[in-house]
């Protein structure tokens, strides 16, 4: 049996020039086009207000305001960091998917990445096949994934906190920076679970805490 055939078979897989270009564009923040109309509207209102008040609402001012509003509402490109700042979400989260939107707030809000994940430090607490079976039917529609996990498998808070500490170490190893329950803006990838919030089992409290406005 010739395992040496694995290498040439896998090496036949290559990124096309178009794929490389797409990745680079995403890195430069150009491809990640994000139409954040509420933000644009707020920006437009500020511009309109400033122009109208600054020029006493004359026609010239009104025209400038219209132009400013049109500019603000036209296509706006945000960098990946901007997206993370505004959404708390980076990567393959379906940010436009309404099912992730917290309808209780007047401004559209999205859950931070940690709301949707179950790190291996936690899934390793339970039997793999039982976990896979549960996970195959679990959905974020029913709330924060880790809360559902804790409830389903009856994970005690002490075990949870140990797993959380292990997860923090794992993040620190990967990113070279300490993880915390409250990382600074733009560093949500370093966020670990807030056990008090999780163990409140109160969806309103949990969603209020983990949805970024």
């Amino acid at each position: 049996m010739d395992f040496d055939k694995i290498r040439p078979a896998v090496e036949s897989i290559e990124l096309s020039d178009k794929q490389k270009e797409d990745i680079l564009n995403a890195c430069k923040g150009r491809k990640r086009k994000f139409n954040y109309k509420p933000l644009a509207t707020v920006a437009a209102v500020i511009v309109v207000t400033l122009v109208c008040f600054g020029l006493n609402g004359n026609l010239f001012g009104a025209k400038l305001a219209d132009e400013a509003e049109n500019a603000a509402l036209s296509d706006i490109y945000y960098t990946a960091d901007d997206m993370e700042l505004y959404n708390g979400v980076l990567g393959d989260m379906p940010v436009e998917d309404n099912k992730f939107v917290n309808q209780s707030t007047s401004v559209t809000a999205y859950p931070r990445q940690i709301y949707t994940i179950i790190p291996s430090a936690f899934s390793d607490l339970v039997d793999k096949s039982e976990f896979d079976e549960w996970y195959s039917s679990a959905t974020v529609d029913n709330g924060m994934m880790i809360v559902q996990f804790v409830e389903h498998f009856g994970i005690g808070k002490a075990d949870f906190e140990k797993a959380n500490a292990a997860y923090a170490l794992e993040l620190e190893k990967i990113y070279g920076e300490p993880a915390s329950v409250n990382p600074e803006k733009g560093k949500e990838h370093l966020e670990i679970f807030n056990s008090d919030i999780v163990y409140s089992f109160d969806r309103e409290v949990i969603d209020g805490y983990y949805f970024s406005k």
Binding site: L15, Q19, D22, I23, A26, C27, A80, D81, L90, G91, D92, Y175, G176, G186, H189
Partner: peptide, 17 residues
């Protein structure tokens, strides 16, 4: 695969050291 690679490079430009 492409999504994962893209995400990886996004983390690279923002989170690497």
């Amino acid at each position: 695969a492409q999504d994962a690679v893209q995400e990886c490079f996004l983390r690279y430009i923002t989170k690497a050291h």
